[in-house]
Amino acid sequence: MKTKLTVTYVILSVFALGGLLPVLWMFVMSLQTPRALNSFPTLNWFKDFEFNNYQIALNQGGIYQGLINSSIITGGTLIISVTFATLAAYALANFEFKGKALLLIGILMTQLIPGMAAIVPLFDILKSLHLINTYTGLILIFAARTIPLNIWIMHGFFKELPAELREAAIIDGCSVYTTFTRIILPLALPGIGAACMFTFMQTWIDFIMPLTTLFDQNKFPFTVMLYKYVGDPIMGTNYGVVFASAVIGTLPTLLMFVFFQRFFVKGLTSGAVKG
């Protein structure tokens, strides 16, 4: 038994290092001048750190404003996407109607064309709804993009919940609404956590839609700010500043992840089954 655990630790450590090292390397690269980056390993990388990259990223890049904008867009998307998906998934998991399986497949099918192809039609839709250059337009697009996966995640969780729970609640005189909020929802928290996390990560890093639909510098999310430094036609990409901005932009994702990770903690769902 002991050896099995040791093997587990070893394998996990290998994977953990595999995940960590390139990201650590990014951090090291974020502290280099362009010249040092291209001269590796002849210059001493660990001698003179270029903290200036962070200053450039923070001061000139408008990253602060970008992070705030990203938070608004992502926060709005989270609320709309997860709420709508949870409601829909509950209906799919707990009510019988014809063509349910087909509807579930159909919902996934909406994700079958590449995002690039949708840019122009989406621009037209936003225009006719007078939502160009607004957060609302972006949030609706991102919500539509993330809802299918969220429906599937939540549906998976709801259908694992024993029907007796609902039955008992209804017999106790709870309305559909109270059954849902008081009994079902708390038990589906791990699913909501997962849905929130995936929604967050998908929305936080996107840049094509904001770039296309926003026309006000003060509304750009941080990803668009970051792309600004990539492929400068005169001096080339300033990787130090790009990676510095990336480190700053990744911190919220990391925090979010640590936060939502709580919902994966063992026992939430299995406790429900036992109870």
């Binding site: 996990l12 994977f15 995940g19 390139p22 990560m201 790009v242 990391l254």
Partner: peptide, 23 residues
Amino acid sequence: FRTLIILPYTLSELVVSLIWLRM
């Protein structure tokens, strides 16, 4: 362990690609 293994996913596709391009 989970956090470290998942670390790459907190980065955007662009940043991931640029890290590997440099490496």
